[in-house]
Design a protein around this nucleic acid. Structure first.
Length: 298
DNA sequence: CAGGCGTGGCG
DNA sequence: TCGCCAAGCCT
């Protein structure tokens, strides 16, 4: 007779904690949702994909002021969005966001869809972003799983110091823990993320102030180092990514977003690497080459 | 599934 | 100084 899986722990205490300790962020104001609708949430979630909150906030307001709807964004050029994206990082996200805006305009009459499958079908939207929009803007009950949520579950429920790599199972896992009521589920999703971002952090968790301290399996076990199966980020210094970043930055800053090909990172120490970077940027649609010049696409 | 993809702050 | 880390997604 196989052992039955342990019952999921009750982590709903995070929701009470969240109501008192949530940071005051733009997308947590009702007016934000009234002003920009699901589009505001979608843009914020795109920017927050791997970029810290503190760097997103100033860019978010400027972006939504310039392009307050999917239709407005859909008429912008790639050059305009890449320039506006500035130094948020991973500039392909700017192109994906623009493409998603076009898709919303064409497929959904300019209204960001509420259904998760429809959201998943949009460019640049995966399991996290789709459910974040459906849960945080529309208020529907979905498991919203990001790196913070996975870390809190790994520690509090599984007693591990770090989460396993992302997996589809994470969604089922979060579903088990999610309160049944829609309004409570939305708060719980946000609360798990907030706890992971501000208390149950990757490097120096503050267990002494954690609302889950009394139920946390990891703390109860003495915070053991259970190993780390996460994927290591490749070294950035000297990488192709760094070369791409240098070329793109030159073009973002150039008048008319155009430069002679030899001027775009022409002094890069490794010419072969520079050429690889240019080719891959072209392949990604981030730049184009015409008549000995490089430019952001119009 | 593993690897690629920016940028900057922090311990 | 240098590696880690940040509300992931695509191929």
């Amino acid at each position: 007779m196989p052992a039955s899986p342990p019952p999921p722990p009750d982590l709903t205490e995070v929701s009470s904690w969240y109501r008192e300790h949530a940071r005051d962020l733009p997308w947590r104001h009702a007016e934000f949702h009234v002003e920009y609708g699901a589009w505001g949430t979608l843009v914020s979630e795109f920017m927050l994909q791997q970029t810290p909150v503190s760097r997103v906030i100033p860019h978010l307001e400027a972006w939504l002021h310039r392009w307050p709807s999917p239709a407005a964004m859909a008429s912008a050029t790639p050059a305009e969005v890449v320039h506006q994206w500035a130094n948020l990082g991973y500039p392909r996200r700017a192109l994906w966001l623009r493409r998603a805006a076009i898709e919303v305009t064409e497929r959904h009459d300019g209204v960001v869809p509420r259904d998760v499958p429809a959201l998943l079908a949009l460019s640049g939207i995966g399991d996290y972003t789709a459910r974040a929009v459906a849960a945080f803007h529309y208020g529907d009950r979905h498991p919203v799983v990001d790196t913070n949520t996975r870390r809190v579950i790994a520690r509090a429920a599984d007693g591990c110091s770090q989460p396993a790599p992302p997996s589809k199972r994470d969604l089922d896992r979060m579903s088990e823990l999610l309160p049944q009521a829609e309004d409570q589920a939305a708060v719980f999703n946000a609360a798990m993320m907030e706890l992971g971002a501000t208390v149950c952090t990757a490097r120096a968790p503050r267990c002494e102030i954690c609302p889950l301290a009394s139920v946390c399996a990891w703390l109860r076990a003495g915070r053991p180092d259970t190993g780390d199966r996460r994927r290591r980020q490749a070294r950035y210094e000297g990488s192709d990514r760094q070369a791409r970043g240098a070329v793109l930055r030159m073009l973002r800053d150039a008048p008319g977003h155009v430069l002679p090909a030899h001027a775009a990172a022409g002094d890069w120490p490794d010419p072969a690497q520079r050429d690889r970077a240019i080719d891959s940027l072209i392949a990604d649609g981030l730049i184009e080459a015409t008549e000995g010049e490089l430019r952001l696409p119009n």
